[in-house]
Design a protein around this nucleic acid. Structure first.
Lengths: 149, 149
DNA sequence: TCTAAATTATTCAACATCAAACGATTGGAA
DNA sequence: TTCCAATCGTTTGATGTTGAATAATTTAGA
């Protein structure tokens, strides 16, 4: 989408790259989703299972931090995963404010089945870039992301 | 977030870059949002006004295409903008299926006020990259995005 | 100890988002 | 001309998302 911005070339360049950045992510995400590699899960549900799979059980607030979502959002997503029997809330013994979330056997079986397929699909999407280009991209993104946010 | 993936280094690298990519976008978007440069508008509402501002009145289906959203979504967002008097639906004379969306004077005034601030904020976010690095990033993203999606 | 501040999870209202189904309309083919 | 397929916008149901308010609990400080 051309932004047609007529001012400062620095601003025009930044707007252009920002649009490219958001559209690239949208584009890749939609192609990944179309492949159905997340099974019957939504993106966020997949994210929750994946984090629990790789990092183990954790409190909801920590889950919110990892996934960059609000606590209210995590409450709902965990609710929906719990209804489907994929995760379980376990009360913390030492701090009764905390409810720890963990995978059920069904949740573990599901993420073990679909994660490799998802990883493979991501690899195929990024195969248009050489290893060096991927490293370069990672460096540029690190500079952009590291700003306190 | 480390993905801790133990397999093919090609897959590990792709997952790593994919995580960096989504997190960079999340991070920048949340900082832009925190600056309040979109005024009292949501991201999508801002997007609609911005497209109408730069490209002129257009049917909802075209708006959906530009913003990569579903038609049902656009219906709702335009509804909300219309309630606030920022846009207007105008029936197409030649094709009664189409309702063209255009800025009202209030909508024009608003986007004319906030867009430059938003553009400035985006420029500041991307000022951590040199012009050459921005160009490099644009090239890499173009390769990633161009895949039919 | 007692109290104030911080943390955790939940709830709610408002908006976003999609997929699917639907009705109205258009355009082309038989 | 008549009918069928495609297009456009809306609606619905399910889920996501935030920010703010709230309740329960813990922690730290006076």
């Amino acid at each position: 989408m051309p932004t047609h911005y007529q001012g400062d070339p620095q601003i025009a360049s930044a707007l252009d790259v920002w649009v490219k950045l958001t559209r690239a992510v949208d584009s890749i995400a939609s192609r990944l989703s179309a492949r159905g590699t997340t099974g019957s899960l939504t993106i966020t549900q997949f994210g929750v299972l994946e984090v629990l799979y790789h990092l183990g059980p954790m409190p909801q607030c920590e889950l919110a931090g990892k996934l960059l979502k609000s606590s209210g959002n995590i409450t709902l997503v965990v609710d929906n995963l719990e209804k489907r029997g994929l995760v379980r809330r376990v009360a913390d013994e030492h701090d009764r404010r905390i409810s720890r979330v963990e995978l059920t056997p069904a949740g573990l079986a599901l993420i073990e089945e679909i994660f490799p397929k998802h990883a493979q699909a991501v690899a195929e999407e990024f195969s248009v870039l050489t290893p060096q280009e991927q490293h370069q991209l990672g460096d540029l993104l690190r500079k952009l992301g590291k700003r306190g946010g």
